[in-house]
Design a protein around this nucleic acid. Structure first.
Lengths: 108, 108
DNA sequence: TCCTTTCATCGACATCCGTCGATGTTATAT
DNA sequence: ATATAACATCGACGGATGTCGATGAAAGGA
């Protein structure tokens, strides 16, 4: 999972550099991970605590457990969240650098 | 098109407020508009100039004119770009406040 | 050992999305 | 008036996406 921390901002000034094809794809993939209301809510939920147990997420949202697991996998594959298992439970947390990098792509 | 300029950041600190259902949907819709490599490239292209003619975009990308028009409509509906016609030509430009608002949603 | 709990994965289904050719609309030129 | 050029819209197609029930894997308790 390559970091995009060094990507140039895609806006908002004349100093903006053109993006390569692979950079477009990486940025689009990260935005796509946020392109669903449930996933936005999960990110928002994770941002309010250091860690959140999956069991809390399945309680919070009116969706099946496989669906929550599916959304978490998409966020994990995009590098926006990471997880660790302790016993039977899985805990998810944000990857702040990834969020910061994405924000940086939207401008200085 | 309601502004999201006042939305709380969805990350990255303990002061983060929970998002309402409609706020999740609005944010997801804006991210969805950026969830495609071509549209990321269009935004990047617009950020390098005050205005860009559609004819320049159809030349730049190896896609049909209807496809470019389709992507521009999605960006327009999301409020990220705006257009104006002068004669036969249509010129598109960024809506900087929308980009800024989206960046704000990703944290302080 | 057997059962329960937690979470991930699989398979299936309906819907959405990106793309294109064809067509419509508007403005300019001949 | 007719033709041409720029752009938007329509209809259709294949592939991707969100959702669920069923199943699998791993850990803990009786």
């Amino acid at each position: 999972m390559k970091s995009i921390a060094t990507l140039p901002p895609i806006c908002c000034g004349p100093e903006t550099e053109p993006l390569t094809v692979s950079e477009r794809g990486e940025l689009a993939a990260q935005f796509k991970a946020l392109a669903d209301p449930t996933r936005v809510a999960i990110i928002n939920c994770l941002s309010a605590a250091d860690e959140v147990c999956v069991c809390n997420l399945t309680e919070t949202f009116d969706l099946s457990q496989p669906t929550i697991s599916h959304h978490l996998k998409i966020l994990r594959d995009a590098g926006l969240v990471e997880s660790s298992r302790r016993g039977t439970w899985a805990y998810y947390r944000l990857v702040p650098e990834a969020i910061t990098a994405l924000r940086g792509a939207l401008g200085a």
